[in-house]
Each structure stands twice: as C-alpha cells, then as structure tokens.
C-alpha cells in the first residue's frame, strides 16, 4: 500500500490491522484449545477458552471504535475505504469464530465416556481442517493475498464433507448405543459449530479478496 500524505492515517490503518491480527491470534488459539479440551476432556483448558472470549469481544469493540473514528475523521476513499470496511466486517466474523470456540468449550463437560467415543476422532480431524482454514485466512489477510484467500474458500468443501460424514456417523452411533444419545447429540452440535467456523473463515476470505482486489471472488459452486 502506498504511504499517505497524512501520516496519522497510516498509523491508524496499521493499528487497525494489528488489532484484527491480535483478535485472529486469540480466536485461532481458542479453536485449538477448545478441540484439545474436547478430545482430552480437559475442563480447565475449556474454562480458559471461555474466559478468553471476553478479551476477543473487547478487541472487537476497540476495532469498531477505531474504524468509525477513521471513517469520521479521515473520510477514506477507494482501497482505504475498502480496507476499513473489510476490517469492520472481519472483526465481527472473527468474533463469531471465537464464540463458536467458546460454545465447543462449554460442551466439554457434557460429554461422558469419551474414551469409547469413536466419532470424537473424526471431530478432531474436522477441527484440524477448520482451524487450518482460520490460520490461512488470517495469513492471507496479513499479506493481502487474494490467491491464498481463494484457496481457503476452496477448502470449505472439505469441512462440509466432514460435517456430512460425521452427521451420518453420529446418527448411526446413536442408533447402536442408545445410552450415549445425550453425549452424541452434543457432538452433533459441536460438529455444527466447527462447520460454522469453516463457513466464517470462508466469509473472511471473501472479504480479504474484496479488500485486496475490489470485487468478491466469483461464486464457484452455483
């Protein structure tokens, strides 16, 4: 990006991007830890994830404030405006990703007898793909890289496929082991949360693409 005549504007934008990156880092760690906590049944770790969400929320508020201030005081144009708008929207989405991680963490204590629960391993694999997406999309944002953003969008299919197979798997597991239905139902919600994380990562990727190029990537599956 070119330097602006008003140096303060540069500083504001840099700070905005920094805040988003910080939010992203926090929510990335939250996904990891939420999944770890889920697999190992570590409730302490889960509590840490739930606590971290507050910080993400606070950062989102800060991003909002700063973005509005930039628009009000500096009246940005063209790619600067896109940058600020994208930042505003991305902050909202990243906050949602943090929320989903928190939801996963909240369900950790509801799952019993996790040693014998086969669908859990599938969930771990799915979570891995989704958190990889979040990681990549944040890198794409930092580098303003539309190509990487497109790759992230393409990965979402994998998460959706995982979701479908986990759904079938869990449902048949419920049929076979009626005693575990309440735990298995929780797994379905968790799978749904991970699937949403993937979708939101896709959203961010679209916004990164928008901020970098000025148009949204063409919808390929429609």
């Amino acid at each position: 990006m070119n330097e602006h005549t008003v140096k303060a504007f540069d500083e504001d934008i840099t700070r905005l991007r920094g805040l988003i990156a910080e939010m992203g880092g926090l929510s990335e760690l939250s996904i990891h830890e939420a999944l770890d906590a889920l697999i190992r049944g570590d409730e302490e770790l889960a509590a840490g994830v739930i606590k971290r969400d507050k910080k993400i929320d606070a950062l989102e508020a800060e991003v909002d404030k700063l973005a509005i201030r930039i628009i009000a005081l500096r009246a940005p144009m063209a790619d600067d405006l896109r940058e600020v708008i994208a930042a505003l929207k991305i902050a909202g989405v990243v906050e949602r990703i943090g929320d989903y991680s928190k939801n996963i963490a909240k369900r950790v204590s509801d799952i019993e007898d996790r040693k014998k629960f086969e669908p859990l391993t599938l969930l771990a694999a799915m979570g891995e793909v989704a958190s990889e997406m979040v990681h990549d999309v944040l890198t794409a944002y930092a580098a303003r890289d539309p190509v990487l953003a497109k790759e992230v969008i393409a990965t979402d299919e994998k998460v959706d496929a995982f979701y479908n197979s986990i759904f079938r798997n869990v449902v048949s597991y419920m049929v076979e082991n009626p005693a575990t239905i309440s735990s298995a139902a929780q797994l379905l919600f968790i799978a749904r949360n991970i699937e949403r994380i993937g979708d939101h990562a896709t959203n961010v990727a679209e916004m990164v693409h928008f901020a970098a190029t000025g148009f949204y990537p063409p919808d390929e599956d429609s």
Binding site: T14, G18, L19, A21, G24, G25, E28, L29, L138
Partner: peptide, 10 residues
C-alpha cells in the same frame, strides 16, 4: 506493518 500482523499468537 503492525507487529501483531506478523505475530498474532497471543
């Protein structure tokens, strides 16, 4: 860039 863009790990 802001240093947090490079290192976003908490």
């Amino acid at each position: 860039q802001d240093m947090r863009v490079a290192f976003r790990h908490p």
